[in-house]
């Protein structure tokens, strides 16, 4: 029932469509233009799109666009406070847990959308521009897309927590950007490497490692980030923690 109510709110909302389109267009555009990037006097060229390596590179690029999804979810949650519709839904018989669950449903929907866009962009560029794929190469590293999905859900969960805590979209968006770009990197620089890797931003980032990280590691020494598979259980734990805290925050007066 409440998920259907969410759909009834989302589908006619232009902001949703604009941000979803922006995510797909920016990602596809960036990926489409990357082959022209010149490094050491040589264009990267279409080998960039070769299966299966394209999945790792693509999900790394897509991780930068998670912010857009986070901002969209913040707007959707802060709207409910601004329009006092969370309050009204509780008056109308929804429980606070149901309200949090319905927003979790929206976060899952956005994650599904982002994962599908990444799959679509990868298949499109891989099949149309990449060299001919060896048998099985297309699906060989598809797990990277799954890990990207968990990462996107992780960022969305953090965004939701900030929106539930601050209740105003402007404030929550600023907090989201500041946390990702300034606060966490600053705090991380002050703690030993053994702890550093478990901070939410760094941990979620390690689900989509920088392409060629292994090579960098052999040159510059281990970077201290967890492997994606090591990071996965911690990421899931963070997701659960963020939604749990969101529920506790929503128990305040509405």
């Amino acid at each position: 029932m409440l998920f259907r109510a969410e759909l009834r709110k989302l589908l006619p909302y232009r902001t949703v469509w604009i941000l979803l389109a922006l995510y797909a267009v920016l990602l596809a555009g960036f990926v489409g233009m990357s082959s022209g990037t010149v490094i050491n006097g040589q264009a990267l060229g279409n080998t960039l799109y070769a299966f299966p390596g394209v999945w790792g590179k693509l999900t790394y690029v897509a991780s930068y666009f998670n912010l857009l999804l986070g901002i969209l979810l913040i707007i959707l949650i802060a709207d409910e406070f601004q329009f006092r519709t969370f309050r009204q839904q509780v008056l109308n018989g929804a429980s606070r847990a149901e309200l949090v669950q319905s927003k979790m449903g929206v976060a899952l929907g956005l994650t599904g959308y982002a994962t599908l866009v990444v799959l679509g962009v990868g298949l499109f560029f891989g099949l149309t521009r990449g060299p001919e794929a060896a048998p099985g190469a297309i699906t060989a590293e598809l797990g990277a897309v799954g890990l990207y999905g968990v990462q996107a859900l992780g960022y969305l969960s953090l965004a939701a927590l900030l929106a539930f805590a601050l209740r105003k979209s402007g404030l929550a968006i600023i907090a989201f950007l500041l946390y990702s770009w300034v606060v966490e990197p600053l705090v991380r620089s002050q703690v030993p490497d053994s702890l550093d890797r478990y901070f939410p931003g760094k941990l979620l980032g390690s689900l989509t490692p920088t392409p060629g990280q292994e090579l960098l590691d052999t040159v510059a020494g281990p970077s201290g980030t967890l492997l994606p598979t090591q990071a996965l259980p911690f990421a899931l734990a963070y997701i659960a923690l963020f939604w749990g805290l969101s529920y506790l925050l929503l128990r305040r007066d509405l």
């Binding site: 009834r8 709110k9 006619p12 909302y13 232009r14 709207d79 329009f83 006092r84 519709t85 309050r87 009204q88």
Partner: peptide, 8 residues
């Protein structure tokens, strides 16, 4: 106050 979604 009446609490509704303004865009709906």
């Amino acid at each position: 106050t009446p609490n509704f979604y303004p865009y709906l």
